[in-house]
């Protein structure tokens, strides 16, 4: 099963990279979403997964039973999900603001910074 998971997560990652290379700001955001989803799954997989019971200690016992799922990657992924959401929300807000002020989401047209010229060219005195 590990190969199937690996292949599936890798495919999601590849699609994310493809979207990330786009010049459309929203598609870049989509790429970020896909990549972070894949990264979460990779992290989850690295703790070894399977159809195990959740890592909860049954009442009356004091120690997690041996067959339970690995709790550590779950804790890490939980953090990552929330952080990923913050990132996406911020990126989307930036995209919206960009569209409102500049009127396009095509990164080829978002070149006001370059249009100012290189800061190193200015001081050149001959």
């Amino acid at each position: 099963m590990n190969l199937i998971y690996s292949a599936g997560f890798a495919a999601i990652m590849a699609c994310g990279v493809y979207l990330l290379l786009s010049r459309h700001v929203m598609r870049i955001v989509y790429g970020v979403i896909l990549i972070s989803a894949s990264v979460n799954l990779v992290l989850f997989l690295s703790g070894r997964i399977g159809p195990n019971p959740p890592p909860v200690i049954p009442s009356g016992e004091t120690v997690l039973s041996a067959g339970a799922a690995n709790p550590l990657p779950q804790a890490l992924v939980l953090t990552a999900i929330v952080i990923g959401f913050s990132l996406v929300a911020f990126a989307v807000a930036l995209a919206l603001q960009t569209f409102r002020t500049i009127g396009t989401l095509d990164s080829r047209k978002l070149n006001q910074a370059e249009a100012l010229g290189s800061p190193y060219e200015e001081g050149k005195s001959q």
């Binding site: 998971y5 590849a14 997989l45 200690i57």
Partner: peptide
């Protein structure tokens, strides 16, 4: 990129897993 991730993930999951840290939390 995808093939690289696949190769890395497959190789990683085929390794034996060190459960000490997870066991510590469970215990």
């Amino acid at each position: 990129f995808g093939f690289l991730v696949f190769g890395g993930l497959a190789t990683m999951t085929a390794q034996p897993f060190d459960t000490r840290l997870s066991d510590f939390y469970g215990a």
